[in-house]
Amino acid sequence: MSSSSKFGDRRGSMAAAVTVILLLVGGVLVAKSFAGNDAPPQPDLAQAAETTAPPAPTSPSQTTSPASKSSATEPSPSSSPDFGPIMGSSAPVSLVIPSIGVSTKGIVDLGVDKNGKLEAPSDFAKAGWYAAGPTPGEFGPAVIGAHVDSKSGPAVFYRLGSLKKGAAVSVVRKDGSTARFVVDRVARYSKADFPTSTVYGDTKGRAELRLITCGGAFDQATGHYVDNIVAFAHLTS
């Protein structure tokens, strides 16, 4: 399986599949495209520099797909330090990121197809989460993805590339609780050389969140963005 993502390709078909490690959408060319000042913002160089360290080794299952509940190994209370709160399981229903103007309800469940590709939300106005993995707030890396734009304009994660370290992210869950995260860093990765283990590997005992979309240059020939943008965050309460 490839380890890049096409989530939110501006010319992507809404029904197209997205590959699991960010391999989000892809597809049919449409008439509208953005250019110049209308291009989605990208992570600043200072944040990108933090992502150059080699990824920690992970098991094969962790390097080929988002973490699932069965593959995540919870730390032993007797042997692991306390890295913060851990919540029980409850599906996300809404996402708010005030600093970049994200407020979206009705988060949809995303699965994977027979090729190991993560399905993209069919609605450009909604985000989706990898329903076979941890819910936001549980131990491990919960994954939420959304399109960056569409033929008609910006989509949910259009400004994800401008998200800064320290920004607040809130996920309201089905049980009425709110999982509150703080952004650790935001990175841009080439889809051709995507660091799967860095994005989906061991969270070192914490409940974490990955927010993913497309970024970088737009390839007119393929109708896809060439990179992925990933925001890394950890649970605070």
Results as ranks from 00 to 15, higher is better:
residue 123 D to L: 02
residue 133 G to H: 01
residue 153 G to I: 08
residue 117 K to N: 14
residue 133 G to M: 04
residue 148 V to N: 12
residue 99 S to A: 15
residue 167 A to E: 02
residue 159 R to Y: 08
residue 129 W to V: 05
residue 167 A to Q: 01
residue 164 K to N: 10
residue 122 S to T: 14
residue 95 L to P: 02
residue 164 K to I: 01
residue 149 D to C: 13
residue 125 A to P: 00
residue 120 A to Q: 13
residue 173 R to K: 14
residue 141 P to W: 12
residue 100 I to R: 09
residue 106 G to W: 01
residue 155 A to Q: 06
residue 113 D to V: 10
residue 135 T to C: 04
residue 140 G to S: 09
residue 161 G to D: 11
residue 132 A to L: 14
residue 155 A to E: 07
residue 100 I to Y: 02
residue 107 I to P: 07
residue 156 V to H: 03
residue 101 G to C: 08
residue 165 K to I: 10
residue 101 G to E: 11
residue 160 L to M: 10
residue 86 I to K: 13
residue 141 P to G: 05
residue 150 S to N: 15
residue 122 S to M: 07
residue 143 V to E: 10
residue 98 P to Q: 13
residue 161 G to E: 12
residue 143 V to W: 14
residue 86 I to V: 15
residue 116 G to D: 12
residue 154 P to I: 06
residue 137 G to E: 01
residue 150 S to K: 05
residue 131 A to D: 12
residue 123 D to Y: 00
residue 125 A to G: 13
residue 107 I to A: 04
residue 100 I to S: 06
residue 150 S to H: 12
residue 113 D to F: 09
residue 127 A to N: 02
residue 128 G to V: 13
residue 168 A to T: 15
residue 129 W to A: 04
residue 133 G to S: 03
residue 116 G to H: 11
residue 127 A to R: 02
residue 166 G to E: 08
residue 97 I to H: 05
residue 99 S to P: 09
residue 123 D to T: 02
residue 140 G to W: 07
residue 89 S to L: 06
residue 139 F to M: 09
residue 152 S to W: 07
residue 93 V to S: 07
residue 145 G to T: 13
residue 110 L to F: 07
residue 113 D to G: 11
residue 168 A to V: 14
residue 160 L to Q: 08
residue 100 I to C: 05
residue 112 V to H: 00
residue 129 W to P: 00
residue 87 M to Q: 14
residue 144 I to S: 09
residue 146 A to Q: 12
residue 166 G to D: 07
residue 110 L to G: 05
residue 127 A to D: 03
residue 162 S to G: 09
residue 96 V to S: 14
residue 159 R to M: 04
residue 112 V to W: 00
residue 92 P to F: 00
residue 91 A to F: 03
residue 104 T to H: 04
residue 143 V to S: 07
residue 94 S to H: 02
residue 133 G to Y: 00
residue 120 A to K: 08
residue 162 S to R: 07
residue 100 I to V: 15
residue 99 S to F: 02
residue 120 A to C: 08
residue 157 F to A: 06
residue 159 R to K: 15
residue 88 G to N: 12
residue 90 S to F: 01
residue 146 A to M: 10
residue 94 S to P: 04
residue 87 M to F: 05
residue 93 V to A: 09
residue 134 P to L: 09
residue 168 A to P: 00
residue 138 E to K: 08
residue 144 I to G: 08
residue 101 G to V: 00
residue 89 S to K: 13
residue 169 V to K: 06
residue 165 K to Q: 15
residue 151 K to M: 00
residue 175 D to A: 03
residue 94 S to T: 03
residue 158 Y to E: 08
residue 120 A to R: 05
residue 92 P to Y: 05
residue 155 A to T: 09
residue 146 A to S: 14
residue 112 V to P: 03
residue 90 S to A: 15
residue 126 K to R: 15
residue 147 H to A: 15
residue 114 K to W: 06
residue 122 S to D: 12
residue 148 V to P: 02
residue 143 V to M: 14
residue 104 T to L: 00
residue 136 P to H: 11
residue 144 I to M: 09
residue 156 V to Y: 03
residue 101 G to P: 07
residue 117 K to G: 14
residue 108 V to S: 11
residue 125 A to M: 06
residue 159 R to W: 03
residue 98 P to G: 10
residue 167 A to M: 04
residue 165 K to A: 14
residue 165 K to C: 03
residue 129 W to G: 02
residue 118 L to H: 03
residue 135 T to Q: 13
residue 95 L to T: 01
residue 97 I to S: 05
residue 134 P to F: 04
residue 133 G to K: 01
residue 144 I to F: 07
residue 94 S to G: 04
residue 91 A to G: 06
residue 113 D to N: 15
residue 153 G to L: 11
residue 173 R to I: 13
residue 172 V to L: 11
